[in-house]
Design a protein around this nucleic acid. Structure first.
Length: 505
RNA sequence: GGUCCAUUCGUCUAGUGGUUAGGACGUCAGGUUUUCAUCCUGGUAACAGGGGUUCGAUUCCCCUAUGGACUACCA
């Protein structure tokens, strides 16, 4: 068999949705698994929907995910150009080839006329279909006398080229994921292949390009399944060998019904896009929310595909090794933000403390804190295992950098009894005179101190935590004290006693 | 409405003509912890419904229901 060649062919109409990223990923995995080529083709035949910045966004997204493009608009390749608008001149002759062979025809009906027919049909509860059943009564080169439509063409009347769908044929075809499918052409329409603005539609352009670019496997979203019979028929009309097709199930929203949309991200609070989209109506991205690309890719790969084993953690290389189209599911997957978070937690734990500290330091700088890297690494080591994102390190350590401004009311009620503050004051005095407050042995000394007085460990230490942290949370108390130092510790104890004392009155 | 596609724990899914229907996330409980979290252990929870075929169906077939996609001179 010839070399596997697949393409990812998005339209630059806005930010790339995670469903699109998954399609790109599956194409990439399939290509690499089979020592094949991954091509990025930009399908910008609808100029009215073109969005500035979308093309760069698509490329940057793939790049962030670690999906490498073999042939594309920037990489070039043996089938340049890879942008359909730049291939404009190619398509017309193929449309005409189809007309010559009797598989397509010119149509002169205006959009308004067709719209009228559609709404009229709808009122009667029918669906208007432009095909063998209706085309004789419409204005086209099949129904009009030759002299007439030739004159219209010569005159420069606007026209489209439509595919001549057979009137009553059963089309049999196979999908790598869905299996065998049969459709009768009676229910299909004469799709426009070439628009009056001189541009091809998707149907024509992608088939011509896939053929010219020697694409062997078309892996795309399920939304294309209904038009697959048309595409199969077109390959036959051209006399070309069709590639193999695989239609991927859709990504569904986490709650409720329907497919995932941009709105869901805003509503439920998780990104629907890989990267931040800065234009117009902005949108959140996984990258900016703190996800690692390894986690994002791992999560996405398992949404609709599984290896058939119980392995869940995959590097890109492992995905390539394990991926097969046979193991892609048939039904839509509901996206689960919790699982995505879990993946990130896993990959964050795998990072070295040093690397994580560097990442945390950048975040800290943006908040105006500048600390020694060695000092920060101690902090990172303390809280690493409890966070899923770098930004959560801050949530877990803010009290290291600044004394608490308020104290948790529930904790005060529960942990500060009548004589607790007095004991805390006693402890403060002890700490003040103590030389070894930052030493490893300090913890034992404090516990001995508590024991000698026959106080309860829990009472004292929880109260101490409360005045140092502001609430009952955080890493090991003695680690916190060692990090912030003796002076700061005493300050916080004094202030805590004063403020909580006032509250208690 | 029409055409096509789909349907296993709440979610992602494995699976077989005879299984205690497996795993992961979540959730719940217990343990660890001076706190919170992490972590560990354990539990909860599913074959959409109805007909067939069969000695036996979650598995094969049909119907229904539900969900989804498409139904543009958009992709």
């Amino acid at each position: 068999m010839s070399q596997v060649r697949v393409r990812f062919a998005p339209s630059p109409t806005g930010p790339l949705h995670i469903g699109g990223v998954r399609t790109a990923l599956y194409n990439y995995l399939f290509a690499k698994k089979n020592n094949g080529v991954f091509i990025l083709r930009i399908e910008d035949t609808d100029q009215s929907r073109f969005v500035e910045g979308a093309e760069d966004y698509i490329i940057e997204s793939l790049n962030w995910c670690g999906i490498k493009i073999d042939e594309g608009i920037r990489e070039g390749g043996k089938h340049e150009p890879y942008r359909q608008s730049a291939r404009k001149l190619i398509y017309k002759k193929y449309a005409e080839m189809l007309i010559d062979r009797g598989h397509a025809y010119y149509a002169f009906d205006t959009p308004e006329e067709l719209e009228e027919l559609r709404s009229a049909a709808e009122k009667e509860g029918r669906t208007f279909i432009y095909n063998a059943g209706t085309r004789e009564g419409l204005r086209n080169s099949l129904s009009l006398p030759d002299v007439e439509w030739n004159a219209m063409l010569d005159r420069g009347d606007p026209y489209v080229i439509r595919y001549k769908m057979p009137s009553d044929d059963e089309i049999h075809f196979d999908d790598l994921i869905r299996g065998h499918i049969v459709v009768n052409t009676r229910t299909l329409d004469d799709k426009v292949l070439f628009k009056s603005d001189g541009m091809p539609t998707y149907h024509l352009a992608h088939i011509v390009d896939d053929h010219l670019m020697e694409i062997t496997h078309v892996i795309r979203g399920e939304e294309w399944l209904p038009s697959l019979p048309l595409h199969i028929l077109m390959y036959r009309s051209f006399g070309w060998e069709a590639p193999l097709f695989a239609h991927l199930p859709l990504l569904l929203k986490p709650d409720g019904k329907g497919k995932l949309s941009k709105r869901d991200g805003d509503r439920i609070g998780f990104p629907v896009f890989p990267l931040y989209w800065p234009y117009g109506e902005t949108a959140k991205g996984y990258r900016e929310e703190g996800y690692y690309p390894e986690a994002f890719v791992n999560m996405l790969a398992l949404l609709g595909w599984n290896p058939g084993t119980e392995q869940e953690i995959f590097t890109m290389d492992e995905l390539i090794e394990s991926f097969t189209l046979e193991r892609v599911g048939k039904s839509g997957s509901r996206f689960d933000p919790e699982k995505a978070k879990w993946f990130n937690h896993y990959y964050l734990q795998k990072r070295s403390n040093n690397q994580l500290t560097l990442e945390f330091r950048d975040l800290l700088r943006s908040k105006g804190y500048h600390h020694d890297i060695v000092q920060l690494e101690k902090l990172v080591a303390m809280v690493k295992e409890r966070v899923s994102f770098v930004k959560e390190i801050w949530d877990q350590t803010d009290f290291f950098f600044k004394a608490p401004e308020t104290y948790d009311g529930d904790a005060i009620r529960k942990r500060i009894k009548d004589d607790t503050l007095n004991k805390l004051e006693e402890l403060g005095t002890y700490l003040e005179s103590s030389e070894d407050i930052l030493a490893d042995s300090f913890e034992r000394h404090v516990k001995d101190w508590i024991e000698e007085r026959e106080y309860k460990t829990g009472d004292i230490l929880n109260a101490l935590r409360l005045v140092i942290v502001g609430s009952l949370r955080g890493p090991h108390l003695f680690d916190i004290i060692a990090w912030i130092g003796k002076e700061e510790t005493l300050k916080r104890i004094k202030r805590g006693i004063a403020v909580i004392g006032d509250l208690k009155k």
